[in-house]
């Protein structure tokens, strides 16, 4: 676009009229400035609080695995048991706090692994010639052909239950989408002039990848992966819920839901408490992703 638009700043308000009348593209560009949104602040604070609780909390609460049957199924707000006790008389608050670490790690590690592997694959595919590009992308297409959750379930079922196997399974299903984002961004970058200049100056493939491509593809990937963390936490807890994650008696949010669903009719809050924890953590990472998108000025919607 060679838009020689007549309006620079300020022609459009941040609140466009309902029909979206936008005088010119420049104005739209100007509207998308980097900014720190309130959502970003609140979600970052929430995540910091959750992390703090999972790190320090276990030292402040009672042993999550000790309970007496005389104290089973105490209601919310009982003396000494703020969130009550479960079917084995174990303190729910203690299990919730202690369950935070495995629940979060089982969501975070797969994203960390897949963001590294996926970025490497995507950038490599984006920078290489037809043959390698085709080989990498078609292989990823195969993984795309599986309904993701089902594939994760199949992989963890095949490997056997256990938190490390659930992490492997989730990492496998998250690599293809990350790689696709990285590939798209890399391809977009290659068309730009300065890449041409870098190549013309005789820079090698690896040097281009590290110096030119990575800094530029990083923001969209960071935004995307942040939103993936929310998804990954939900999936990880889901695998535990199905009996594919941590094994009892370890405290973990998904497993708690699965444990407590037998009391669903009499004590629904037992199921709701860990569910709420998962929801809050997941929403927080999704909002953080949105906030990062505004902060890093990445275009487009994060697709989860």
């Amino acid at each position: 676009m060679t838009a020689v638009s007549d309006i620079a700043l300020g022609a459009t308000s941040s609140t466009d009229p309902p029909t979206g009348v936008r005088p010119a593209t420049d104005a739209t560009v100007a509207r998308r400035r980097r900014r720190v949104t309130w959502g970003f602040r609140i979600s970052a604070a929430t995540i910091a609080a959750i992390v703090l609780v999972t790190l320090i909390g276990p030292f402040l609460v009672s042993d999550p695995n000790v309970g007496s049957l005389s104290e089973r199924l105490l209601p919310l707000g009982s003396a000494g048991h703020l969130l009550g006790t479960d079917g084995q008389g174990r303190d729910v608050l203690s299990r919730l706090v202690n369950g935070g670490r495995p629940s979060l790690l089982a969501g975070l590690i797969p994203v960390a692994v897949s963001s590294l592997v996926g970025t490497a694959l995507g950038v490599a595919a984006g920078l290489s010639g037809r043959l390698t590009h085709g080989a990498i992308m078609r292989t990823l297409d195969v993984f795309y052909a599986f309904p993701a959750v089902l594939l994760a379930i199949a992989i963890s079922a095949a490997l056997g239950s256990g938190i490390s196997n659930s992490i492997i399974a989730l990492a496998v299903i998250l690599i293809p989408p990350v790689a696709r984002v990285a590939e798209t961004e890399t391809r977009r970058l290659i068309d730009l002039d300065y890449m041409e200049a870098a190549r013309a100056s005789g820079a090698g493939g690896l040097s281009i990848a590290v110096r030119q491509v990575l800094p530029n593809v990083a923001p969209p990937i960071i935004v995307y992966c942040t939103a993936l963390i929310g998804l990954s936490i939900v999936y990880a807890a889901g695998l535990s819920f199905l009996g594919l994650g941590v094994s009892p008696p370890t405290a973990e949010w998904g497993l708690m839901i699965s444990d407590y669903k037998q009391f669903l009719y009499s004590f629904p809050e037992l199921t709701a408490i860990p569910a709420l924890a998962i929801l809050v953590a997941s929403v927080a990472f999704n909002v953080l992703g949105d906030g990062l998108r505004d902060l890093l000025d990445v275009r487009g919607e994060t697709l989860t």
Binding site: D6, D16, P17, P18, P23
Partner: peptide
């Protein structure tokens, strides 16, 4: 005119192509 001189806005104003913010 140059970019920002108001020439395009003049043209569009004649046709009343802007929304309520104008």
């Amino acid at each position: 005119g140059e970019s920002g001189s108001g020439k395009s806005v003049t043209a569009r104003s004649i046709m009343r192509l802007y929304g309520r913010n104008a």
